[in-house]
């Protein structure tokens, strides 16, 4: 059993590391949401492996909470990513040219 547990734990740990790589590299917010999802799954899996090894059930409620937190996290990130600069035509102008809005504020300030 110990060998099995070690092998499984190493595999899950590598998966979590790869998820971290994707979070770091991910070109967009959505890629990071996806990596975070996998990272959460890896954590849940690691806790499950530990509990299976020691036959203890105290950590099982953590699994329930974390599996829901992962879902909420990716939903929130995807909602926000819909408004990420560079995605919409309106905010694109804002993102590429920082000066005009400031200019406008300046002009308003001058007028007042």
């Amino acid at each position: 059993m110990t060998v099995v547990v070690v092998v499984a734990a190493v595999l899950v740990a590598v998966a979590a590391l790869l998820a971290l790589v994707r979070i770091e590299r991910g070109p967009s917010m959505l890629d990071r949401a996806l990596g975070l999802d996998l990272l959460t799954a890896g954590l849940v899996g690691a806790i499950a492996i530990e509990a299976a090894w020691s036959r203890r059930t105290e950590t099982v409620p953590i699994l329930v909470a974390m599996s829901l937190v992962g879902f909420v996290g990716s939903v929130v990130l995807s909602r926000f990513a819909a408004r990420e600069p560079g995605s919409e035509p309106g905010s694109d102008a804002h993102a590429s040219g920082e000066v005009p809005p400031e200019d406008r504020i300046d002009g308003q300030g001058g007028r007042q």
Binding site: L11, V14, A15, L17, L18, L34, L38, G45, I49
Partner: peptide, 12 residues
């Protein structure tokens, strides 16, 4: 664990 590992590889 194998499937989770494969998921990690695929994500990268």
């Amino acid at each position: 664990a194998f499937l989770t590992f494969a998921a990690g590889v695929g994500v990268v």
